[in-house]
Design a protein around this nucleic acid. Structure first.
Length: 314
DNA sequence: GACCAGGTGCCAG
DNA sequence: CTGGCACATGGT
């Protein structure tokens, strides 16, 4: 091991594990997780409350903090990617995307931080979600010795601060939803662990009862924190992709979702992630003009230009 | 400045 | 059930 040690905290033990068919960089930048920061040609962050530094060199994963079992589980190194890829081999466009994203894995994220983070996601770009997530961690999360990225704040903490405070983190209109959801969870009114024993449909319905969580966000949570690998979150990008796959046009986002599941098979959520990544990174293959379903708000043209512009500081 | 971002909630017809 | 709009913020 020749990388620079991030620090010398005694609790950070180093180690290395094999990771065939894994692309750490691709996985951490695919829009499923938002708190890993590039450092020393690797990434620093945390897995739940465990501070961690990770760096990949070919088929080896070097780490400080955590342990091999924790890391293998978090990055889902046990998923059989060739099996998953082959599950869509009958659909050329998807198969191409899957092959182009070789090594991208759908991780197993801690429930609460995944749920809370995706409440932040509506009408935000991946880079912005990252900003908000880090602002919340810095402001209200537990400091972890060994990583400059704090843990995600507990629900009870977020429930105890004001909506104003949350808006200070750049959350905008999402602040109220995050606060109220935090309250529902920290009060014991809503139990995230219960969902894991429920079927996907029931779990989705339960998630959608929380403020700020609609079908799309619920699907992200089911896919990224409950390992429901067949679930397809339909956002602007996936909407464009699926629309481009067929001539007949869909009437609703939900119909597109069913179409996606049928088309992409038992690992539709995984394949969706490949398509999402490709659509987002391959420039202008999917025109933004196309009115995609259920996501493009039409801002009122009559609304007056905000006077807030005047008080803009700096 | 206009446009857009891993949408949701609410309300009218 | 469907269509239309408001909701905050920041980057290109």
């Amino acid at each position: 091991m020749n990388f620079d040690p991030l620090n010398t905290a005694p609790e950070l033990q180093g180690g290395v594990i094999e990771c065939p068919e894994f692309d750490l960089d691709l996985t951490l930048n695919s829009g499923q997780v938002f708190h890993w920061i590039p450092a020393f040609e690797g990434f620093e962050g945390c897995i739940g409350e465990t501070p961690c530094f990770i760096r990949q060199k070919e088929n080896l994963l070097y780490y400080q903090g955590g342990n091999a079992v924790l890391i293998r589980n978090y990055f889902a190194l046990d998923h059989n990617l060739s099996l998953i890829r082959d599950s869509c081999a009958n659909h050329p466009a998807s198969y191409d995307a899957a092959k182009a994203c070789r090594g991208l894995r759908i991780m197993r994220q801690p429930r609460w931080e995944c749920l809370a983070t995706f409440i932040l996601s509506p009408m935000k770009q991946v880079a912005h979600i990252r900003q908000m997530s880090l602002a919340l961690r810095m402001g209200y999360g537990r400091k972890l010795s060994g990583s400059s990225v704090p843990a995600f704040p507990e629900a009870s903490v977020l429930a105890s601060v004001t909506e104003r405070d949350l808006r200070q983190c750049g959350l905008g209109f999402r602040a109220g939803a995050l606060r109220e959801t935090s309250r529902r969870i920290s009060s014991g009114d809503f139990d995230l662990e219960n969902l894991s024993s429920m079927n996907t449909e029931d779990a989705r319905k339960a998630l959608c009862s929380l403020p700020g969580i609609g079908r799309k966000v619920a699907n992200c949570i089911l896919l990224f924190a409950y390992e429901r690998l067949d679930v397809v979150p339909v956002d602007v990008w996936i909407s464009r992709v699926l629309v481009s796959f067929r001539s007949r046009k869909a009437k609703s986002a939900e119909e597109l979702e069913r179409y996606g599941q049928r088309l992409l098979g038992p690992y539709a959520g995984y394949i969706q992630q490949y398509l999402f990544h490709r659509a987002r990174t391959e420039k202008s293959k999917y025109p933004r003009k196309l009115k995609s379903i259920g996501s493009r708000p039409s801002y009122s043209k009559t609304a007056k230009a905000s006077p807030r512009r005047i008080l803009k500081t700096k």
